[in-house]
Computed example of a mutant assay.
Amino acid sequence: MSGAELKKVGLKVTLPRLKILEILESAGEDHHLSAEDVFKILLEQGEEVGLATVYRVLTQFEQAGIVRRLNFENNVSIFELDTGDNHDHIVCIKTGRVREFVDSVIEERIQEISKELGYDLSGHNLVIYGAYKEELDPAIK
């Protein structure tokens, strides 16, 4: 997302907004970041942006539809870019690592349940919690 796209969603282009957006876009596989994670990355990059500014920018991004705020059982909000896709999350109760997954059977069943109960589904949020079995992939901890 560029400065022009920030303007398009009604946000003024500022250096903190651009830097935070850049961090979110370049986060790779572990792209579920807390405000504190973003703040630490900014510090590592030598940027002088306060934690309050990070929270404010992330909230503005959420209101503009740029990011989604996710709240899990640890009461810490994490943020991910809102790519418009539909996916669910699984959280390791040991490490707090969040992974995404898509399962067509689950998606279909959610649609069926909504219909059976007389609801027009507008969205859903499925979070699974468990302890990751390291022997499956020792590189992931």
Rank of each mutant, 00 (worst) to 15 (best):
L43R: 10
I128S: 01
R97D: 03
F72R: 03
P16R: 10
A35M: 01
T14Q: 12
L43S: 07
G28P: 10
I106D: 04
D103I: 01
Q63I: 04
I110Q: 05
D82Q: 02
E22V: 02
K40S: 15
K94C: 04
E112Q: 15
T53F: 05
S114L: 05
A64R: 14
T14E: 11
P138H: 12
P138M: 05
R17L: 08
V105I: 09
L136D: 05
F39S: 07
K141Q: 04
T53Y: 07
H31P: 01
I106K: 12
D85R: 09
G84A: 04
S2P: 00
S2G: 12
D30N: 15
H87W: 05
A64N: 12
V54E: 05
E80F: 01
E100N: 11
R109V: 07
L33F: 02
P16F: 09
G118L: 01
I66P: 06
N125C: 01
S26C: 09
S2Y: 04
T83Q: 09
G118K: 04
V57R: 06
Q45N: 15
A139Y: 12
L51T: 01
G130I: 00
P16D: 04
N86A: 10
E62L: 02
A35Y: 04
L51R: 15
G46A: 14
E47R: 14
I113T: 10
L126M: 10
T83L: 11
I78C: 03
L11C: 14
F101N: 08
I66R: 03
E62W: 01
N125S: 04
Q60L: 11
F101K: 08
F39P: 03
H89C: 03
I23E: 05
A139H: 09
N74T: 02
H87P: 00
K40D: 15
I41T: 13
L15I: 14
V105T: 12
G118S: 01
L6G: 10
S77R: 03
D30E: 14
E36C: 03
A52Y: 10
D137M: 08
N71E: 14
V54G: 10
